[in-house]
Every structure is written in C-alpha cells, then in structure tokens.
Nucleic acid binder design. Structure first.
Lengths: 225, 225
DNA sequence: GGCGGACTCCCCTGAATGTGGTATGGTGCC
DNA sequence: GGCACCATACCACATTCAGGGGAGTCCGCC
C-alpha cells in the first residue's frame, strides 16, 4: 500500500516491552513512507515521561505491559494529552480487555497479527479521526451491544442452552455447580462414563473445549475469549 | 480495488425504499466481481418474506424504511436467521440510531456516503465474520465506552477475593475467563509453573479444590455446594 | 420393519489440572 | 541483620478432563 500523499510524517510513539517486537515495529514504521517512529518505550512509566515531552501524533501501545497495565497507561496518557490517539495492540481478542481499553481511552484496538499494511492503514485512520478496530474486535464490540439488549431477560437456559437435550441440561447444571464427573454421576444416578459422553456432546454443541468455558457459557459470561 | 479471489459469488439482498438508490446499489453489486444482488426489497415486510426463502449471504439495509423501521426489521430478520450478517446503511451518524441498530442485531453500520469500494470491502468483511463500521460510527462507539465509566462486563471480584494479593487476583481473573494455565502464563508474562504456584495459594485462600469452584466464587455463584 | 435420536455404558490415549515439595530474589519492617 | 511476605520458578506424582473409538437399549415416526 502506497501513501504518496504524505506531506508530513506521522510521528508515532511505541510502547512495547518485547525488545524484538519493538525493534521490528520501529523499523517497519521508519521504512514506510509517511511514518516515523519518534520514540519507543519498554514500559508505561517511561512512555508517560517521554510522551509528555515529545508529543507524537499517534501512540501504538501493547496492552500487556510489565508493571503498569496498558489500560492504566492509556488512562494516564489521556489525562495529559486528551486528543492524542492511542492504538492498542494485543494478541488476545478477549472482550474484557477490549472494553477495559476502550473505556480507558484507547482510540482503536488491533490484534498483533494484523498485517503491516493494515497496521499502517489503521495509524492513518486514527490520525484522521477514526477508530480502527480489527475484525475480531469490532465483532466483539457489536456483540456487546447485542448482548446488552438481551440482558434484561436473558439468563441461563436461554440462547446458549437451547439445543441441549433435557438430560444434557441436567448434566450441565450440575457441572456448573463445580462438581467433579464422578459426583455428577452419583447425583444423577448414572455412570461416570455416561457423564463423559454427555459432556462431550455438550461441549460440541456449545463450541467449547473445557469445563470452565462451558460453565461460563451456562452462567451467561460469554464473549470471554 | 480488485477482488480476484472470488471463488463464489456473495449473494446480497437489498432493503431500500428509494427506487433510484435501490437500482443503483443493485447495479453496482452486479457489476462488481464476486458479488451478486440476489434480491431487492422496498420495505421490511417484503424483505422478511423474501429473505426467509432465499437465504442470502449478506443483507444491506437502509435504516429509514417506510412503515417498519429498519431496526425492527433487523430484529425480526435475526430471529429467523441469527447468523445472517446485516449491514445497516444510513445518512445519519447519530449515536442513538447507531446504538439502536447495533442492539437490534445489525452486524455493521455504514454511512450512505461510503464509497463503492469501501462498501464492497465492508460486505466482504462482514461476510468473513467482521463488523465493519464507518469511521464516524466507530468513533461514536468508542466514545460510548469512554463515557460509560462503569464496567459493562461484570467485575464483582469484591467480597471473596479480598484476601488475595494483587498478582493472585490477576491470575484468578484470567483463570475465570476460561484460559488454560499456559495461556495465563503467556498473558501475564510469567512461567507456567508460577501460574500453578499462584493457583495453589489462591485455592487455599478460597477453600476450593478445583478450577471450576474458584471461578464460581470469583463470579459470585457461591450457593453451589 | 427400518431409521434416527436420546440415553446409557465401556476402552484407550494424551493433555490439563491439583497437590506436595523446594528454592531464589526482592521488599518492607523491626 | 533477621524475618515475613510476595512473586517467581522448577520437580514429581496422582487425579481429572478432553477427545477418539465403539456399542447396546428404548422410543417415535415414516
């Protein structure tokens, strides 16, 4: 992707603790027409000190920083430079993190596996007043609204649990109280193996791969990951 | 923008009351490689009837429909085809409309002045599982989160969790989202073994003996056993 | 009668988890 | 300095869980 219109370089500041990734990102920016990596910081406090003085156009921030969480760093950054756009980078498209970041003041939210071109595009966009989000992130955000709407009524046994048979629901209900397989078997007066068979089909139907995920869905804490 | 990869046409259904715009959009789709305008409806009821039978891949819907508001139409569409992605089109970048649409089940939200290329891109994106939004819309959404100062997602790690150290709370928080030990280790940038050590003391403090029980306590579902 | 779906049970394998040790470095406090 | 507490990390062993087979009974439906 060429950006020939660049009349003035976009000054980018990086906050990323992994030295390799930091160097890569910096090199990538500096080798891209229209961009300049003005500074790169390894942790939150350093970034806050540096950015106060250097006033970049855009900040790229890892959400997983040692010491100070990226979200806290954003919050403080936003206090000293409210209009400075901050793009969060993360490997996880976990909804709690996303919302926490957005509420802290992040302007956009990208997954780390975003391609070079998409990343540059996002920097341009955020600089132009947009709010770029990776596909997965946007989807989470949209789902948040959709869930917020269902919330009043929706609780357990609703959307998620519908396609389960009666017996499967019973098994899931006991599972969701924290009982071990053999305890479930006792309670329902069936064998351990049968419990497992049910659980296998339950997992399939709920699209999960662990006990905890199933319990989360059952209790309505979706969107987790 | 070229989309040469199209192996199979994306079947698009239109819902737009303005005949001129409807015709233009249809023509635009049909003249674009990889897309096909399967049907075009002038109002909500017609769309609901038609889409029930024809099963398009993506729906493009005007938010201002005569008779039935686009938001209601989306809601009903979502009931009969929950996974059908719906892109809303509107002239207003008014936050109320946006949130109402998203809550009704719209998957993406575009302004009508969106360019042809952006529109096609958005259709591809929504078809691929994304949630495309126009720049202005994304910005509104982000601002919504920044204004909402309370957690949209539950954070009731109060009573039970008090005696845990900061780090332990962090570990528990990630555990409670369903991540495996090694994933927790990655996220917190500590070793697998350290995660296990933390979990051991967490279990001790919470008087539990399994992951699921800990998660239940964390989320406040104590009554269980 | 055959067929599919629900429910039941069993075997095996490999991965994840629970619990017992032990140990190092840092920090705060007396 | 000595002590307590925290965060980090590793080893080992037993148990539990997850996913892959297969298989028999009962019941409703075409």
């Amino acid at each position: 992707m060429n950006r020939l219109k660049a009349k003035k370089l976009i000054q980018v500041a990086l906050v990323e603790d992994d030295p390799l990734l930091r160097a890569n990102l910096a090199a990538m920016l500096n080798s891209s027409e229209g961009f300049h990596c003005q500074a790169a910081y390894a942790d939150g406090p350093a970034a806050l000190r540096g950015i106060r003085a250097s006033r970049p156009d855009v900040v790229l921030m890892d959400i997983n920083l040692p010491g100070m969480p990226g979200t806290d760093c954003v919050r403080q950054l936003k206090e000293l430079a409210p209009h400075l756009p901050v793009l969060m980078l993360t490997v996880y498209d976990d909804s709690k993190q996303i919302f926490k970041s957005l509420m802290s003041g992040a302007t956009g939210y990208l997954l780390k596996r975003t391609s070079r071109d998409k990343l540059l595009e996002a920097i341009l966009e955020v600089h132009a007043g947009g709010a770029p989000m990776s596909r997965q992130v946007a989807r989470q955000v949209v789902q948040f609204f959709q869930k917020a709407d269902e919330m009043p009524v929706t609780t357990r046994n609703a959307s998620v649990v519908v396609n389960l048979t009666e017996r499967e629901k019973e098994v899931l209900a006991v599972l969701a109280k924290g009982y071990a397989y053999k305890e479930i078997a006792d309670q329902l007066k069936i064998s351990f193996e049968t419990v497992r068979t049910h659980l296998r089909t339950i997992y399939e139907k709920l699209h999960v791969h662990s006990r905890t995920e199933a319990v989360l869905k059952y209790h309505g804490h979706e969107g987790g990951r």
